[in-house]
Design a protein around this nucleic acid. Sequence first.
RNA 1: GGCGGCAUAGCCAAGUGGUAAGGCAACGGCCUGCAAAGCCGCUAUUCUCCAGUUCGAAUCUGGAUGCCGCCUCCA
Length: 490
Amino acid sequence: MKITIYNSLKRTKEPFETIEPGRVKMYVCGPTVYDSCHIGHARSVIVFDVIYRYLSAVGYDVTYVRNFTDIDDKIINRSNELGVSAESLAEKYIDEFHQDMDALNVLRPTLEPRATDHIDHIIRIIEILMDKGFAYASGGDVFFSVDLFNGYGKLSGRKLEDMEAGARIEVDQRKKNPFDFVLWKSSKPNEPAWDSPWGKGRPGWHIECSAMSEDYLGASFDIHGGGKDLIFPHHENEIAQSEAAFGRTFVKYWVHNGFVNINHEKMSKSLGNFLMIKDIVKEYHPEAVRLFLLSHHYRSPVDFTDQNIKNAAAGLDKMYALLERAEKYLGTLPDKDAGYYDEVPVSEKDFWGLFRDAMNDDFNTALGIGILYDSVRHTNRVLDQMPETASADNTQNRHRISNECLHILKMGNILGLFAQSPGTYFKQKKDRIIDQKSFDADAIDAMIEERRAARKSKDFKRADEIRDQLKNMNIEIEDRPDGTIWKVIS
RNA sequence: GGCGGCAUAGCCAAGUGGUAAGGCAACGGCCUGCAAAGCCGCUAUUCUCCAGUUCGAAUCUGGAUGCCGCCUCCA
């Protein structure tokens, strides 16, 4: 089955055919680094991380570029407020971005260019646009003339004459058309500035992406992504600039992810309900955040609520519990890149194949996660039918379990799950809770030991008393063949 | 005003013409000293409403209602 992608430009799903066979060139708009990243950034980054992982996994040679916008009005304003240089402010938030994304188990893209490293290239493109008559200078600013670009509005489906110019912002009188946008912006004293043929200034927002994408991917490339809000004006303007300058189709597939709401409300400054990544990962496992976000189709809005994220966290526990069980049985889990044992009958369902079908259909991770749950349940069922430890069992059964785990690990690898060993996962989780709730782990272990002794001497009354005591402390115990474990009920 | 999206069980959520995935919760069973975990079963004759196309519609068309997003250098 071939991959289909929903193309925002055509408003329909299309078969995915790369410009160059076997190669994918992908550009995704990264953050403007003037503040910490919130859950919305996480979604966008994770969505494209999964697309990157998947395309790579199925054999494409993927060049993935994600930029940093490190010069912009917001950065300048913030740096003035804080009394630090724009450069050091950007540096700080680039570091923080990396910390957040590493925590979320996001792979680094092939390249992470910064706007300020591409000023020369930006100026060259503006010069091309001036030469071709698409741009005009006024004062120290340079504007792009939208009326001269045939096809302006094709991505966002807007017609210039239908839009309410200046409905919400004052129209700049120097513009020939209110929708003309700035390519080069003259600087005020003490603002970061670069020399240009039009005087000292800095690039406009949109032009940097045209420059950086052309630099690393060429004038035409396969996939351009970003949040839905970027469709207009950012991506519309990128198309206009790049196609006007280079005379070629800019991007083949436009991919846009939906928003994250918090308790049914849009995140906004006025509501003050921004959820920052660094705060979320203090409370929830980063992979639970991934599982939650990827449980919805990437184009749909998702609603971040306590209930929903807890649901995902419980699901992740269930998956890791199965992996722990299998690991105990096998001694060690198979490597995700290992081959299947083909001398044992493959399970009645090829879960990895089904997962691939789901991903091939416009990266339907929600459907894929359903298949992942299916395979977890199936593997639990198979394990139920086998002796508890591998020592008493035969090679064929071991290989069968190994194959099932391989399916699960491969799916997890695409979704960015199961980066930890089950042992580490559960230990970290427990340590974190002990730390947060100041539990005395030794005391709990002592109670469990006392209960074990009571059970051994058939004093079930005492054993149940201890269990009830623990339950009152929000601790639940589980008697396994090889001992009793405990966990905190959340 | 222009453009776009969404409405599926108590909750979350897949599903774009062939008879409703998956998760959570609830309930019944197996297992267990009893639990927990795991497994099995059960849980929407039906997909906001009305009309139409079709042998057949959650899926297509028209209309209604409700909710949401973009048109602000917000992912």
